[in-house]
Design a protein around this nucleic acid. Structure first.
Lengths: 169, 169
DNA sequence: CGTGAAAATACTTCCCT
DNA sequence: AGGGAAGTATTTTCACG
């Protein structure tokens, strides 16, 4: 949170991030073995990554389908004037909403939701109706969820200086 | 994966799921203390939840902004005929893609991506261009990410049974 | 920053209820 | 299914390079 040294991550840090993204419950012992460090050093690295706000949290993932929420969908919301979901009702009133983003463009919000049935989805749509127009798309398959963030960026180098500030790499 | 007993979860199971979704690195000792169970019993419960496919994995979360990926966006893809991203190039060729879903409706895919800059996003758009038309929306704020799945469903009652076969459980 | 060693915790297995 | 106790492993602290 505070201003930090912002040291660039070395390859050991990246190994740690990789392993912990794949299995957050690894012991420091085992993690240290995998990255080539003793367990105290490993614990210290992890502590610093947390303090730097790079490792933000550790979460077990629950399969919605197995707990009675077999239908997942994205709902795009274009908020009605003066009734934006961000300002009026907070999304916490809707337990079906797992994620909520504010987006550029025509729609002010994108919601990811999990519900027990299509009727339940329809009911949710109706409850959301007062916040504005919606476009709902059901997820028909999760091709890729939670890809690991791995290594620093694909070359941001190669920026031939141009006079267009938005000009790409 | 196999056919299961499918016992409904009791309130202790839900407490465990809640705590582990919030902190996947909790020790069985501490977890047991929080849910009112000894550590062997707790470990056994967790093992069963994993075996039932309810707890699918444990992942550390990395803040993209802190590792040089300050721009996140959703890209809707309408695949060109015969060039669907699911069939031809697998999404793994694009390290920027963190999540990928197949959706009902006009667009065949929704991608969540993280990139180093707007030029980088533009470059990605161009590389994806051959797979079909795109609509890109930048995430301007993460209002809610990874809401915890908590308790069985919000009342699925109030659904008068109908004779429509698509009416889900 | 890293390590090794010792003390404090935590985990696992086994048996009993 | 859950609890207790014993043996093993892991975490944490600390002195030192």
């Amino acid at each position: 949170m505070t201003l930090r040294s912002e040291k660039p991550l070395d390859s050991t840090d990246w190994k740690i991030l990789r392993e912990l993204q794949r299995d957050a419950r690894l012991s420091f012992n085992e993690l240290g073995r995998r990255v080539g460090l003793s367990s105290p050093s490993t614990a210290e690295r992890v502590r610093r990554l947390e303090e730097a706000g790079i490792l933000t949290d550790y979460g077990a993932r629950v399969e919605p389908t197995r707990v009675g929420l077999p239908v997942q969908a994205f709902i795009q919301l274009r908020c009605a004037p003066g009734m934006c979901l961000f300002k009026t009702g907070s999304a916490e009133q809707f337990p079906e909403v797992l994620e909520m983003y504010k987006l550029s463009g025509n729609h002010c919000a994108l919601l990811k939701v999990a519900v027990s049935s299509l009727p339940h989805l329809e009911a949710l749509n109706e409850r959301l109706g007062r916040y504005g127009e919606q476009i709902t798309n059901i997820i028909t398959s999760n091709v890729l969820t939670h890809r690991i963030i791995d290594q620093e960026q694909p070359e941001m180098d190669a920026h031939p200086p141009t006079n267009q500030s938005w000009n790409v790499q």
